[in-house]
């Protein structure tokens, strides 16, 4: 061994090649690096085995360097003593990495000895435990977060698209509807009744005893502002469009099957089971508009 003069004592550590045989009969030796060359160094003259001593590993098979606080020696190639492997295989290259920081015992008499791994054992098991749980928990947390975002996005595709939403709002100018007048506008393909009610009509709508109604609902529940009644002009019976300012109750009358609605759009007579539906709407006072949708 061509080590420096200050070299630490270096003891090669030997392990036997673990050879096993595949079902096909081909022998394999897992874990062996076969990079290294055999001892027999020739001189490039092509005359067979070189002059290197066969009983000493050549200098290139190991290297010692000062790493950090101690010497490290990496030895890719070590001998298998002939008494272990038999004479014929004494030049078989075997790779083991040996460094002085791992407290490998001195050459063991038994090739099956297990190294002392105790220095891998943690000194702080509670830290390790908390860290492992933390990592597992973090994975769950990130995964749950990603899954939530994905599901949200999928659900968002069920919502109305932007072009539908753009058509979904209709603006009605309040100043264009005089008192006691109906206006019918188209909204999402359906007629919407907008009535500018008079004081008398409001009084009438609010004087009804809702206990007598088929679909009990107060007028206050049906309007946002008493003078503006906004509702879908679709008869709740079979979907006809009722006629305004007619019927027995001064409201709407459906010509198809004779349902009568009062001035609050509530079903009072005939086959209609429910009051006329109220769509979502809002007031824009700055521009004097009702925004339906």
């Amino acid at each position: 061994m061509a080590l420096p003069a200050r070299a630490i004592s270096f003891k090669p550590y030997n392990l036997a090649v673990t050879t096993r045989t595949l079902p096909s009969g081909v022998p394999i030796a897992p874990g062996i690096s076969l990079y290294a060359k055999g001892y027999g160094v020739d001189h490039g003259h092509g005359h067979g085995h070189g002059a290197a001593r066969s009983d000493v590993p050549p200098s290139w098979t190991s290297g010692v360097r000062l790493g950090g606080s101690n010497f490290e020696s990496k030895t890719p190639l070590l001998t298998i003593p002939p008494f272990l492997m038999g004479e014929s295989s004494c030049t078989a290259p075997v790779s083991r990495s040996v460094h002085t920081s791992s407290q490998v015992p001195a050459p063991s008499p038994s090739p099956y000895a297990v190294p002392d791994w105790s220095h891998y054992k943690t000194e702080n098991p509670s830290m390790n435990r908390a860290f492992s749980y933390f990592m597992v928990g973090s994975m769950g947390l990130l995964g749950a977060s990603a899954a939530k975002a994905t599901i949200t996005d999928f659900l968002a595709t069920m919502a109305a698209s932007a072009d539908v939403l753009a058509l979904a709002k209709v603006e009605v100018s309040m100043s264009a509807i005089p008192l006691a007048k109906n206006v019918i506008i188209k909204w999402r393909g359906k007629p919407v009744f907008v009535r500018h009610r008079t004081e008398d009509e409001i009084k009438e709508a609010r004087s009804v005893n809702i206990k007598t109604l088929r679909d009990p609902q107060t007028d206050e529940d049906r309007v946002k502002r008493p003078e503006w009644l906004v509702m879908l002009g679709v008869c709740t019976h079979l979907g006809c469009v009722p006629i305004g300012e007619s019927g027995d109750y001064g409201g709407w009358f459906c010509p198809c099957h004779g349902s009568h609605y009062d001035i609050s759009g509530r079903a009072r007579k005939g086959p209609a089971p429910l009051n006329l539906e109220v769509p979502p709407y809002d007031f824009n006072d700055a521009e004097e508009k009702i925004i339906i949708g």
């Binding site: 690096s33 076969l34 290294a36 060359k37 055999g38 027999g40 067979g48």
Partner: peptide
């Protein structure tokens, strides 16, 4: 022989 064969081995 040994060098060549061991190189191909590697």
């Amino acid at each position: 022989f040994s060098r060549l064969s061991s190189r191909s081995l590697g």
